[in-house]
Amino acid sequence: MIGLILRRLIQLPLILAIIYTATLILAWKVPGNPLENPEGRRPAPEVVAAMKAQYNLDNFWSFYFSYLDSASGLRALRHAVSGESRAARDEALAAGRLPPSQPIFDLGPSLSYREQRVNEIIGSALPVSMSLGALAIFFALVMGVSAGVIGAMKPNSFADIATLSLSMIGISLPSFVIGAALLLVFPVWLGIGRIPSWGTPLDMILPAFTLSLGFAAYIARLTRMSMIEQLQSDYIRTARAKGVSVRGVVLRHALKNALLPVLSYLGPASALAMTGSFVVERVFAVPGLGQHFVNAVKNKDLFLIIGVVLIFSTFLVLLNLAVDVLYRVVDPRIE
């Protein structure tokens, strides 16, 4: 088990380096200059050249290596060892300035939000997305597993068809429709909740519910399928023959095994939910990470694009690792 964890953690930087290279090449190829207002007056050519030079945007390779250098923490390490960061600090203080702040893993400035650094943006948005995503996954598990179990108990009954139809609706209805409808019904018509929907814990419920629907539907279908399969297996029949109640069989024996496929789905689903959803965040004005995935590409904000992609990749790798570990805990036969 420890070997698995170590192996995966050693792989992580390698995976991130490959993703970084691929993302940067793609993002670099996107046309346009991220530093100018897309609609206004184009600055004079010499001003454009100066703008690009500010951020190393004039040369792909110099950008590639300087970003790698500062994002990986190598630069901070080098400066600390050579004493350069201390020298810079002393020089600034001597000139009556504030000492420069230098994070260890510096993901660079944001080109579209000039006042923010990517570290700050991710630092403020990630906790929001994580808690919203965690709550959404929790909702999805509760709703999905119960719907799946209800359906599996009596396949093709009314309850089964009803839950299946509901989950079909959950998968098909886009979240901006559900989100906008929820906003219209609750804050606007009934006066429950508020817009913007962020700030108090209660505010999380509507966006988390909206975000959870798609996951819940998928989980319901997974649970139903594997539950039906489990309920038909020999050990269940044996348990029933021994006189275990239906309830006991379903909850204690079948559900445990039926949830394995759900567990493997939970890894990527959590990564997806906890790194934010563009639509849900937009509709409910949630200050999460999801909006940056779309807006950064739209604005060709290179630093932010790479920053959010790296964060998402890290989450995906770590959560998949967590699922693998859980798998072994749940089912000791898996090696």
Binding site: L183, V188, G191, R194, I195, P196, R282, V283, F284, A285
Partner: peptide
């Protein structure tokens, strides 16, 4: 100054008096 990007949510925020 509230940060609400979605145009529909903006109008609804005004409707709720926020």
């Amino acid at each position: 100054i509230l940060s609400i990007d979605d145009p529909v949510s903006q109008s609804m925020a005004f409707q709720t008096g926020a």
